[in-house]
């Protein structure tokens, strides 16, 4: 079963705090939704199969329709808001890289040994510390998404969107453009190489074309 959740783009095998928080939210919601589905469909099944039964309106509309969902949703919205607050980028001087999307590829600028280095299709970031991606676009709207690290953020021409992520361990993570952007949309992939910040900086030369999509899951 769990093997079915694998894959380089699986949100269910998180490799960073944001993705882990969202995966936790997902499993909680799945459990709750499963229980509610069973409850509602069981009631409907019983109601369909036999009867008539004497009943009044109040338990159905007031308790079932109003009070029950209000209570569940209040808890859920609060929980999700709390998780979301922990994820958003803050003005705290975190490690920052720039990403520019275009039809159809990604151009990244990240700190290198001798100042900023521009790479195509591969982004280098340190492990175990939050980093901000400053996103923009050269042409149409794209969306930056590394599912194992966290949620997505759009790259919009003329705007600078800041997206915060963090990787738990060094490795290679797959990313893709999630917003439909024309003919090359399906192939608009990229790779995030997470290095150990205590070790030497990796060679920041852009990888040859094609290898960006050849990697497997994170080690």
């Amino acid at each position: 079963m769990l093997a079915g959740c694998d894959g380089a783009f699986s949100t269910l095998t998180p490799a960073g705090p944001a993705a882990s928080g969202i995966a936790l939210l997902w499993w909680v919601m799945l459990g709750g939704a499963g229980l509610i589905t069973i409850l509602v469909l069981s009631l409907a099944w019983i109601a369909l199969r036999s009867g008539p039964r004497a009943t009044v309106e109040r338990p159905w509309t007031i308790w079932g329709g109003l009070a029950f969902p209000l209570a569940v949703l209040a808890m859920l919205v609060g929980f999700a808001l709390w998780i979301g607050e922990r994820m958003i980028a803050r003005d705290d001087g975190a490690f920052a890289v720039q990403a520019e999307a275009y039809q159809w590829g990604w151009s990244f600028v990240q700190p290198g040994p001798d100042g900023p280095v521009r790479t195509e299709g591969v982004l280098y970031v340190p492990a175990r510390q939050p980093f901000d991606i400053v996103l923009t676009s050269r042409d149409v709207i794209h969306s930056f998404w590394v599912p194992q690290l966290g949620g997505k953020m759009d790259a919009i021409p003329g705007r600078r969107n800041v997206h915060r992520l963090q990787a738990d361990a060094p490795g290679r993570y797959e990313g893709l453009c999630a917003e439909f952007c024309g003919l090359g949309h399906a192939a608009m992939r990229f790779e995030v190489v997470v290095y150990d910040p205590s070790g030497p900086l990796p060679d920041l030369a852009p990888l040859p074309q094609g290898s960006a999509s050849a990697g497997g899951t994170a080690p």
């Binding site: 509602v40 009631l43 409907a44 019983i46 109601a47 369909l48 036999s50 009867g51 008539p52 039964r53 004497a54 009943t55 309106e57 338990p59 159905w60 509309t61 079932g64 329709g65 109003l66 029950f68 969902p69 209000l70 949703l73 859920l76 919205v77 999700a80 808001l81 979301g84």
Partner: peptide, 30 residues
């Protein structure tokens, strides 16, 4: 968050209807 809360809240009137329909079937013989 405004829109998230509103999107969650809109489930409530939907739930009211679903339970009213189930209650109707419950009260009758389908």
């Amino acid at each position: 968050a405004f829109f998230s809360a509103a999107s969650a809240l809109v489930a409530v009137p939907t739930a009211v209807q679903i339970f009213a329909w189930i209650g109707t079937m419950w009260a009758g013989r389908v």
